[in-house]
């Protein structure tokens, strides 16, 4: 009898495709990372992309951050009041936002706005042969189009998260004042009392990785869009889904690493 039982354990086609995709994105990341350090620096394009991708996402991030802080405070307050620990609310909200909720929610918003935007833009450029035209005119599109965008998201997403964290605290302060009067200085003092470097540094490093991934996934999907206008929409959609999933996976890994560091 032929032993074919092992075939049952081989990953089926969709699973294999997922691993192929992960491998392709990893290889693409290496290529792009090499381009980042190559000359010319493409500073004007980097600044233009930082403005387009970062600054233009600011209003959305500010609104989300403010609402996030308010909602978190309103939801947590009754529970803490029951335990007579209302004074712990600012600290608890701040740690939740800085450590986890701020980076993840803002990264997800950036995945929705920025990764899809990059995916659609590069996808459209691929389909209309603009990327080929750029290459033919002696410009390296991987450097000019991709590396600048990836570098911009890597810089801008952490900045957006930091801004959103502060706005969340203002939202939280506003929500606190709905039920009880508390001065801003006291609120901030209570907020930052329990905050340590171990809360801030890993969370900030995590956002740098989120930014890189958002740029890479958006660029990869757009750059490799197949022919036809349909693929532009697919690239944008796929960029959001893949980037969002990657954010959760990286977050899980980051939490594990931070946990290990705190034990040591």
């Amino acid at each position: 009898m032929n032993d074919t039982s092992h075939r049952d354990f081989l990953p089926n086609q969709p699973v294999r495709e997922i691993f192929n995709e992960i491998g392709a994105i990893a290889a693409f990341s290496v290529l792009v990372s090499k381009q980042i350090f190559k000359r010319p620096a493409e500073l004007p394009e980097f600044l233009r992309q930082s403005y387009t991708l970062g600054y233009k996402a600011l209003p959305l991030v500010l609104i989300t951050g403010f609402i996030l802080g308010m909602v978190l405070t309103i939801q947590m307050r009754p529970l803490l009041v029951d335990f007579g620990a209302e004074s712990e609310l600012p600290g608890l909200v701040t740690i939740s936002i800085v450590r986890e909720i701020g980076p993840v929610i803002i990264a997800l918003i950036c995945a929705g706005k920025i990764a899809s935007g990059i995916g659609a833009e590069l996808g459209s450029m691929r389909v209309t042969e603009q990327i080929d035209a750029m290459e033919v005119s002696g410009t390296n599109p991987m450097k000019f189009l991709v590396a600048t965008r990836v570098l911009s998201t890597t810089f801008m997403v952490p900045l957006l998260v930091i801004v959103a964290d502060f706005i969340s605290l203002i939202g939280s302060y506003t929500a606190m004042n709905i039920h009880s009067k508390i001065s801003l200085s006291l609120y901030l003092s209570l907020s930052f009392d329990d905050l340590t470097f171990l809360d801030v540094i890993p969370a900030t490093i995590k956002t740098v990785v989120f930014g890189f991934i958002i740029g890479i996934v958006g660029s990869y999907k757009g750059y490799h869009a197949e022919r036809g206008t349909e693929s532009v929409g697919f690239a944008a959609n796929s960029a959001v889904v893949t980037a969002s999933l990657a954010i959760f996976v990286i977050d899980l890994l980051a939490v594990q690493i931070t946990d290990l560091i705190s034990i040591l």
Binding site: S124, T128, E129, Q130, D132, A133, M134, S137, G138, T139
Partner: peptide, 25 residues
């Protein structure tokens, strides 16, 4: 190379489209 649809860069004006290869080459 003249591409089928012209492959004009959508995000740039006509002037910028023409300046692009000059500035880079």
């Amino acid at each position: 190379f003249l591409f089928q649809g012209g492959a004009v860069y959508d995000s740039m004006t006509v002037r910028e489209n023409l300046e692009f290869p000059i500035k880079r080459n």
